[in-house]
Amino acid sequence: MENVRRVISVLVENESSVLSRISGLFAGRGYNIETLTVAPVPHSNLSNITIVTKGSARVLEQITKQLHKLVPVYKVIEHNEMIEKEMVLIKFPIEQNLADIQVLCGAYNGGIVNVGNDIIIGMVADEPCRIAHFIEATKRYNPIEIIRGGVVAIER
């Protein structure tokens, strides 16, 4: 069966061990994690975990069901109709063209967030596939360091 990419959003009780329950489930059952982000849901005792994974239809179904089985999991949202965004921080040497980098970051919903003595730091936030294009496009400016934030998603 063909592997497909899938974004899964998991609403969990905000307790200390919940992340390890989820990551342990993925590790123990051999499921793949591409990105994983966690943050508390405002004004609640819940957290939201966004996982990007890949697998066959059967594996993706199992992931959803196994996540549901975990006691602190309230809700598992898994479908194609999600708005996805990912943030990237990227560091360039100061010798690079500041204006070029500014325009490039601007084209991907971002800009320059810091310029120091030796470095320029850019930030963009965009759809994961566009993030890949952005990273490709930055190559000619010799980036020193690239930090991806992982995907967050919300139902349409």
């Binding site: 200390s16 061990s17 390890s20 329950r21 342990g24 489930l25 123990g28 006691v71």
Partner: peptide, 16 residues
């Protein structure tokens, strides 16, 4: 203990 037993219990608790 909760770390080790996570994959072989239905649920587990560390009482704080």
């Amino acid at each position: 203990a909760v770390g080790i037993s996570r994959p072989c219990t239905k649920h587990n608790y560390l009482v704080r």
